[in-house]
Write a protein that binds this DNA or RNA. Structure first.
Length: 488
DNA sequence: TGAAATGTTGGGGCG
DNA sequence: ACGCCCCAACATTTC
């Protein structure tokens, strides 16, 4: 009997899983494995929210595998060491996995592949996470892209062509036969993925990790919000986005599955503008592709600005900004849209993308706090924390990255709030102490008449903070700071 | 996937 | 009637 290991990492699904499909095609027995390899992940080991998701997603995968008559073997320790042990124990002759693109994993996986092959095994990796491998797309001069528009101009038609040629996701296996004698598995609890203090209470109300739940969410999205995606995706009070970012991060769904679902939707639904809406959603997947493309080709960007001149940017010093950073993290800045976003993040492990841009602009420009502080906080608190997307997002917001917002593009959080949360429903939901305010007073309570505040039971400095910065002053300060590095 | 300052235009009030 | 001015509305430029 020929046996293969399938090394699951961030492809926690059975359907459209190229490594799993290859193993099933070529071998009689397949052993699914997950390894908790903490050492390999530094300095971007998954944060608390991400680990919470991982715990439940692994439990879900194990459940699905058992339904097929299989198991998920959990191991702790070095990846190569654990794989080698499992190969010996099972007599496996092959190891398959789907690729990761973070700098910490690219090198490790290459080494694992080499060593396994040297010992006479089949070791093969697949693309299960991206529509395009980062090395597949190149500019006319053969360089990696640094600007999204030309990147997508190249990628999008190629994607269309593949769909037109009938590419579809791989089916999920209906049965999975494992070796008779299974190696020992660590318990899920022994991986200590859940937080020690129960700050995850709000997560359960919002999220159900797992492949089946991801498809339910996709179904819900395709059945309604997708048709209004382009107009409503920027409104944080409306449930207009797919909410699939964590599922995509952990590979509970593949981008190809989403693209094909959107294609089916455009083709089937006689709703005006459905095509443009579906296309816009796919374009957002394009940003995800672009982020992975950049991370692969510029592996230092999680810590270092893409453009050197930003190395000299006059950020405030830690001792100057410590209190402001803490206020931002806790949602106590005194600017309602900022506080609503930061509290949504803390409570639910997620923040609407429009609000991510607003809070990022506020941190880096109004507060002049280094973008890496924001990136680290998001990393620890987002259930969808993803190094490629997080890095792109923060460098874009700070203005120091590829295809970044120009440095002078400073969001005015009050205007953004009035524009995208016009009725204030989002603020009221997450900042309940302001719930009785409305209109301009809700978006900028410090400008409201005292009587209005009193009537709403708001006492600035007591029930809700005074703003920690003056928006106009800090805008000018940021422009002056950027002016200093402009020429160099 | 900005905001604010500055410039331009044209309707209407008014002497 | 006419010119002047104000200013909203929109466009362009600048940060």
């Amino acid at each position: 009997m020929s046996t293969a290991l399938v090394w699951f990492r961030r492809d926690l699904r059975l359907a459209d899983n190229p490594a799993l499909s290859a193993a099933l095609e070529r071998h009689e027995q397949v052993l699914p494995v997950y390894i908790d390899d903490a050492d390999a992940e530094s300095p971007w080991a998954p944060g608390g929210a991400s680990r919470w998701w991982l715990h439940h997603s692994l439990a879900s995968l194990e459940h699905h595998l058992r339904a097929l008559g299989s198991r998920l073997i959990l191991r702790r320790g070095g990846s190569l060491e654990q794989l080698s042990q499992l190969v010996t124990l099972t007599g496996a002759e092959a190891v398959y996995w789907n690729r990761l693109y973070e700098p910490a994993f690219v090198g490790r996986d290459k080494h694992v592949k080499e060593v396994l092959r040297e010992s006479g095994l089949i070791a093969e990796s697949f693309n299960g996470a991206l529509l395009f491998e980062p090395w597949q797309l190149k500019t006319g001069t053969g360089d990696p892209y640094r600007v999204f528009s030309p990147f997508w101009r190249n990628a999008q038609p190629r994607l269309q062509e593949r769909l037109a040629n009938g590419q579809v996701p791989l089916p999920a296996p209906t049965a999975l036969s494992s070796p008779g004698k299974l190696p020992d598995s660590a318990s899920l609890e022994s991986l200590h993925l859940l937080p020690r203090i129960a700050w995850d209470a709000g997560f359960h109300q919002t999220w159900q990790p797992g492949e089946a739940q991801a498809h339910e969410r996709l179904q819900r999205f395709a059945g309604g919000p997708a048709a209004r995606y382009r107009e409503q995706r920027d409104l944080p009070a409306v449930d207009a986005t797919s909410g699939l970012s964590p599922a995509l991060h952990f590979g509970e769904v593949s981008p190809l599955q989403l693209v094909v679902r959107m294609q089916r939707l455009s083709a089937s639904k006689p709703v005006a503008g459905i095509h443009a809406n579906a296309e816009w959603f796919v374009r957002e997947l394009g940003w995800r592709e672009f982020a992975h493309h950049l991370l692969f080709h510029f592996p230092r960007t999680p810590e270092v600005p893409m453009y050197d001149k930003f190395g000299a940017f006059p950020w405030r010093a830690r001792h100057e900004y410590a209190a402001d950073l803490s206020a931002w993290q806790r949602g106590r800045t005194g600017v309602p849209i900022i506080d609503a976003g930061m509290r949504q993040l803390w409570r639910s492990g997620w923040m609407h993308n429009r609000v991510r841009m607003i809070v990022a602009s506020f941190l880096t420009k109004n507060l002049l706090i280094p973008w890496l502080e924001g990136a680290r906080w998001f990393w620890d608190t987002l259930v969808d924390a993803n190094l490629a997307n997080n890095t792109l997002g923060w460098q874009w917001s700070a203005g120091c990255g590829a295809d970044a917002a120009p440095y002078f593009r400073i969001f005015n959080p009050v205007l953004q709030s009035a524009k995208f949360d016009a009725d204030g429903d989002y603020i009221r939901r997450w900042v309940p102490e302001l719930a009785k305010l409305s209109g301009d007073a809700l978006h900028a309570p410090w400008q409201a008449k005292p009587a209005v505040l009193r009537a709403a039971g708001v006492a600035l400095g007591q029930t809700y903070p005074q703003p920690i910065v003056d928006l106009a002053e800090s805008r000018a300060r940021a422009l002056a700071a950027y002016e200093r590095i402009k020429a160099t």
